[in-house]
């Protein structure tokens, strides 16, 4: 006698469940950064002038370029999902490579931004930063913490896309079964969306 199997088995493939799980996970990521946005807004409210002065030290051009880079990468990853849905695996793979390339560009620009600041002694514990007024110090603490954590998410997102490439090569992700790619793309959009908020908060508000 064959074994009895339930129709609603947890081992069935369920794309809806994967998507629901991913969205719940994205909620937690939003709340993770939400806590930081809360801290930012309170300290900005308490130290409005000092935050403004400190923000002049940031390079708006580099920030803008990075925003464009990330937005473009979100576009390429979205197209990659569509290409996979339409059965064009080749194009989908190329677009994922493009996304990872943009992620690297973002990180390189970020690296130059940070090292320029550190050269000027603007890092926690360094001389220049220690001389600033308390509010401006807070600005830089938050700047490093929030863009640092975001940078970490860029790295993780890039690694996940690398795994997607691997799964496509092994044919585990294919035009009939592309939830892994779609969820990775959702994660990538989250990374992008968070930057869309970080950019004006640190570079633009005057």
């Amino acid at each position: 006698m064959s074994e009895f199997i339930l129709v609603n088995s947890g081992h069935n493939r369920d794309d809806e469940a994967s998507k629901l799980g991913m969205w719940l996970f994205l909620f937690t990521e939003l709340l993770l950064f939400g806590g930081l946005f809360l801290v930012y807004s309170i300290y900005r409210y308490l130290n409005a002038d000092a935050f403004l002065h400190a923000s002049y030290n940031l390079n708006v051009i580099m920030g803008t370029v990075n925003t464009v880079v990330l937005l473009t990468s979100s576009w390429t990853v979205a197209m990659s999902v569509t290409a996979m849905q339409k059965g064009n695996i080749n194009l989908s793979v190329k677009l994922i490579y493009a996304t990872i390339f943009f992620a690297l560009v973002f990180l390189v620009i970020k690296f130059f931004e940070w090292s320029a600041k550190i050269e000027h002694g603007l890092f926690p514990g360094m001389e220049h930063l220690n001389q600033l007024e308390p509010g401006s110090k807070l600005f830089f603490f938050l700047y490093y913490f929030m863009t640092g954590l975001h940078g970490l998410h860029v790295i993780v997102g890039g690694i996940i896309l690398g795994f997607v490439l691997f799964a496509i090569r092994k044919k585990r992700t294919n035009p009939g079964k592309y939830m892994f790619l779609e969820n990775a793309a959702l994660y990538w959009h989250l990374v992008d969306v968070i930057w869309i908020f970080l950019f004006p908060l640190f570079y633009l508000i005057h």
Binding site: G35, N47, P124, G135, K137, L138, L142
Partner: peptide, 26 residues
Amino acid sequence: PIIGITLLMIAAERVFGLGLFDPSLG
């Protein structure tokens, strides 16, 4: 996630010398 980020901030204060909750640093 809120406690997650709060505890990470404490860890960052201790490791990197950020002053997010330390009144002597603002």
